[in-house]
Structures are given as structure tokens and as C-alpha cells.
Amino acid sequence: MEDTVNAAAERIRAAGAGPARPARDPVNLPMIRNWLEAIGDRNPRYEQDGLAPPAMTQVWTMRGLHPAADPTDPLSAMSAVLDQAGFTSVVATNCEQTYHRYLRDGERVEVRSRLVDVSGPKRTALGEGWFVTTDSTWYVGAEAVASMTFRVLRFRPPGSVAATPASERTAAASDVLRPVVTRDTSFFWAGTAAGELRIQRCGRCGRLRHPPGPVCRQCGADRQDHLVARGTGEVFSFVVHRHPPVPGRRLPIVVALVELTEGVRMVGEVLGADPAQVRIGAAVRVDFVRVDAELTLPAWRLLP
């Protein structure tokens, strides 16, 4: 079962972005008003200037009451595979939307989505399931106006049939190479687990340093402290890794050496990026990949 899911995921992922799917209607004031009213948003700007609230971006391309089957849509295709494997329930877990500009009344948008990652099976509070991550970009003509990374959990409701035998359960997380953590470096990993990117700072002279170590190279002090990085930086260099396999990852992956705004450099995977779009100098923001209770990895996402 697990191999079937992984093989399907790889196939769908390799197929890349599906075709552009146009919104049913152009951006329009009646729907904007309905939304503002239901949400309780009294910001006058939208009606005055004929702008759509940014959080409505996805609304324009929702499929409606009777959605047609769309095998070319990566999320639909992956959902069908997981449905077949018994993971019939779904819950959204993460949604990150970036708005390059606000949409205007009358504009016609279309959306293209691609499957980024399928990981599992994992035990969750809801039951055993798979996390499915997609990236979507909305366009007006050729102009990208917004993008979204969306993650859902497809799970088998507890009590349902055919629980996977334990022997088949080799979560991809267990394959990820784990860092050697010492007293000198544990603050960093405690930080990622807490959603903080920590940079070592000398407790005496304040010098920042990464990778960290027990003694300040500037003043010799062994009192180490840290600050929480802003989480932004620029790609200093990067690699598109295609061969050989990397445990716990589906290739290709983009790994970047990022120069943080604070001045230190740090290596991390660039998530959800088309390798062809990554450039030296590109702005990135930190993200965190929770592997399991013990390990959360820092990673990067390109900023628009």
C-alpha cells in the first residue's frame, strides 16, 4: 500500500503543474460584498476602490457545488489515490498565502497547482494519515498575483478497516538524517522545534556565529547566548541535487546556502521551489519542517 501511494505521489509530482483552471466568474462586487458581510469585515476600501480582499483569492477558483472530476488536478489525483487506500477523511492543516497585489473588480484569474510533497503514513491525533502539500499560483493573464502552499491531512478515521501492519510502516521521517546534537548546539535544535531560528551570540562581545561553537572566536569568551533571527535572507549559493538518493527526500531538491539578514550563513532546503526559479541573491524566508517530536529542520522558501 505504502509503495503504491509513494509511486503515485512520485508520478503526480513528476508531472508538475496541472493545466491552468480559470475562475468561474470574474472578480465581482456582489461576491465581494457577500464575503465582507459573512466574514464581518467592515473595511470600506474594497467596495470604494473595487478591490477584492486578499483572503478571497482562493474563493474565485473554488469548484462550486457540483465539482467535475478533474484528473489533471494534482491534489484531486492524489486524493483519489489516498481515498482508494482507505484514507477517506480530510482536514486542512496549513495554508500560507502570499499576495503580490490585490485583485481588481472585473479581472479574470486562473490557478495552476502542483503536488509538492506526500509524506506518511504518520500517526496523528486523528488517526493514521498522509500529509499532502500542494503549491498553487494564481494568474491574471501571464502575471502571477498570488501563491499558496496548502497542506491537508488525508487520514483513516479511527475504527475503520485495514489498519496498516506495523511492519509496513516506515515513515519517511525515520529516514531523514538526524543531526548530532551536543551541549554546544542543542539551543539551535530546541529553537527550530519551537519555530525559532536561533543564531549563536557571544555573551560577552555579542559576535554572531553560525555554525555555533563553545568559544567565541573574537574575544575568547565561553559564555554563549543566542538571538532569534528575523528569518529572512538571501541565497548565497545553491545546488539542485538530482543524484544519488538522499534519505527521506524525493529528488530533485534545491539546497541553498543562505546569508541571513543578520550576516551569518546557513544551509537549508528550499521548499516548494521550481529549481529553474532559484537564483543567487533571491530573497528567502525561513520555514520549519517538523520531522517528528525530536527533530524540526530549518528550511527556506523563496519570497516573491
Partner: peptide, 29 residues
């Protein structure tokens, strides 16, 4: 050295070719 490796192996950078590619890209740039 294992501690040094903690700053790139878990992040997916774990082959000699990939570690050199990082420098090669910058050199090209």
C-alpha cells in the same frame, strides 16, 4: 566532524558532489 555535518546532512546536502556544487555555483556567479 559529526557535529559539523549536522549543519548540512539533515538539510539534504550530503554527497561530495553536492558540497562541491555549492562552491562551484558561487564560483560561476
Amino acid at each position: 566532524s559529526g557535529v559539523d555535518n549536522a549543519w548540512h546532512y539533515p538539510m539534504g546536502l550530503g554527497t561530495p558532489a553536492a558540497t562541491v556544487a555549492m562552491v562551484a555555483r558561487r564560483y560561476q556567479h
